[in-house]
Amino acid sequence: MRRAFAGVLVVLALALALAGCSPAADGGAAKQGTAVDGGASGAAGSVTVFAAASLKTAFTDIAGKFEAANPGTDVTLSFAGSADLVTQITQGAPADVFASADTRNMDKLEGENLVAGEPGNFATNTLTIVVPPGNPARITGFSDLARSDIKVVACASQVPCGAAAQAIEQETGTRLSPVSEESSVTDVLGKVISGEADAGLVYVTDARNAGTKVEEVTFPEAATAINTYPIAAVKGARNKATAVAFVDFVRGPEGQAALAAAGFGKP
């Protein structure tokens, strides 16, 4: 019995090792093949777009318009934090286009030699203050966030929204002491919507998405930390022509109109 077990283990280990190696090698070759073949033709077929979570509303809109403008195309969207997306693409996820919420993560993907061509900036985003409806703590500007009697929630400095908040803090000399430093804007927004926090720092687009569940308090100092969104086709894209066409579409008039409607600024 023990010998049989050992034998099975060896076979399984071998099978797993083979399974682990072969598709990667095949997949890589196949990807390059189609990229060369498809290079000459126009936009057609399916394209997979990996986009930062904050782009969800705008890109869902843009994808629909792109499919309508280019019959025969099919856009698959995948939304997550930019850093997550870079990890996924690096690990071989089938992305044709990458739209990042900051230049740092696009640089990371370029560092992995996975960006085709030069990334182009297509939108900007700034921070804004959100408060629960009725503004119970009477926040009127950025300096109010330093008050000791209120609960402020912001992003941690490791994530783009937190880095932007830190830049504004340095610029204005206002020191915040948040009760929580979240990993994502969604978590900040959640804590304001639920009324746990008196104020939160999120992007303008997040505030607009939340609708009437929060109130927005704009502050002029936000202009000192503008977040730029770059987009690029991924190297080894299965459908390079369509990927490039989608990138151009986002940066074109229709894409820009959809982004403006979602609250994004011009690049």
Binding site: G81, A156, V179, S180, E181, S183, D187
Partner: peptide, 24 residues
Amino acid sequence: LTFAGSLQGVTRTLPLEIYLQRET
């Protein structure tokens, strides 16, 4: 993460720290 938030020394436990470190 949903209920307590994430602040060093107060609510940021090891799994939350891992999640945050992964960003950078």
